[in-house]
């Protein structure tokens, strides 16, 4: 297995290089002069402007710029700064914990609600509970996340005062509960449907009938032979979700004013701030790659037929 993990970790190197190159190119192709965007309406002397351009290597060829960037990132250069003059790594360090907490909370909500509700729906397929669940999940799937976000913010935050309207700089787990739920909502609907189908399919599997024929009670059959088998595809899906949760964080963090990675990325893109944008996206890519490795390893734990070499 370690051989496999090593191979997978080595694979992250080309993924990292490719991802940063592509994003760098996209930022590079963005129209407008980032220096002018930075200073805004204030007049700027040509000398200062040229000095800033030199500092950020803006006059060098594209590939050379990318290599300068790589050097700063790989050596964790503490003087590596964004266009606003603040160190990039420090910014990410400050923004990372809240986003990770948010994403993990969303993931937990996704797993618990999705699997529990999905299982009950699957056990009584075509019953009233199943039909109601399917209908609700369909609605949740079809409404965009920012609509759900604003509506829940309006009701729970403004009207009922059950949750803080915005989170702001000093976040707590309690404050993040509503945003995490908003973030998870679309995923819950999908997880739930997946769990439901998986459970319902497994109920009619041959080995489940054999288990019943052994004289096992219904509860034991469901616990040992239906649930565990159904979880394999569901867990895979949930794990991969973390990536999409990081992406969804851009919107949710915007709605609830959370100073996380999503917000950071959004602002950096607006500024045309190549160092920050590319670093943040690279971090997200790495998290995604790492998560899919973890998922593959969990998969092997759940299903003994999978063996990695």
């Amino acid at each position: 297995m370690w051989w496999y993990v090593g191979k997978r970790l080595l694979q992250t190197i080309p993924v990292f290089l490719g991802a940063t190159l592509i994003i760098y190119a996209l930022v590079f192709l963005r129209p407008g002069d980032p220096i002018l965007g930075l200073v805004g309406d204030k007049p700027i002397s040509p000398e200062v402007r040229q000095a800033l351009r030199d500092q950020y290597h803006l006059d060098d060829p594209f590939l050379l710029q990318w290599l300068f960037f790589l050097k700063d990132v790989v050596t964790f250069n503490p003087d590596f700064v964004g266009l606003d003059g603040q160190p990039v790594f420090e910014k990410i360090q400050n923004a990372f914990p809240v986003t990770v907490t948010l994403a993990l909370m969303a993931l937990a909500l996704d797993a618990v609600i999705g699997i529990v509700v999905g299982t009950f729906a699957g056990l009584r397929r075509n019953g009233w509970f199943d039909s109601a669940t399917l209908l609700v999940s369909l609605v949740l799937l079809s409404v965009p996340i920012f609509v759900v976000g604003f509506v829940l913010q309006l009701f729970f935050g403004v009207k009922f005062g059950l949750a803080p309207v915005t989170v702001g700089g000093d976040w707590t787990i309690g404050k993040l509960l509503l945003p995490a739920f908003v973030l998870a909502i679309a995923n819950i609907a999908t997880t739930l449907r997946l769990a439901r189908t998986s459970v319902a399919d497994n109920l009619s599997a041959d080995h489940v009938r054999t288990a019943r024929a052994k004289g096992l009670s219904n509860g034991t059959v469901v616990r040992n032979h239906v649930l565990r088998n159904s979880l394999v595809p569901v867990v895979t899906y949930i794990g991969i979700n973390l990536g999409s949760l990081m992406a969804g964080a851009v919107i949710t963090e915007g709605i609830f004013n959370i100073q996380g990675i999503g917000n950071l990325a959004y602002q950096a893109v607006n500024r045309g701030d190549a160092p920050v944008t590319v670093t943040v996206v690279a971090v997200m890519v790495m998290v995604y790659v790492f998560m899919s490795l973890v998922v593959d390893l969990i998969y092997a734990v759940l299903d003994p037929r999978i063996r990695y070499v």
Partner: peptide, 20 residues
Amino acid sequence: RGSSIGLVPQDPMSNLNPLW
């Protein structure tokens, strides 16, 4: 089931739970 009437099913490939 099991104690008085036992079953040996048809297809050995699909009748054992692969995860246990």
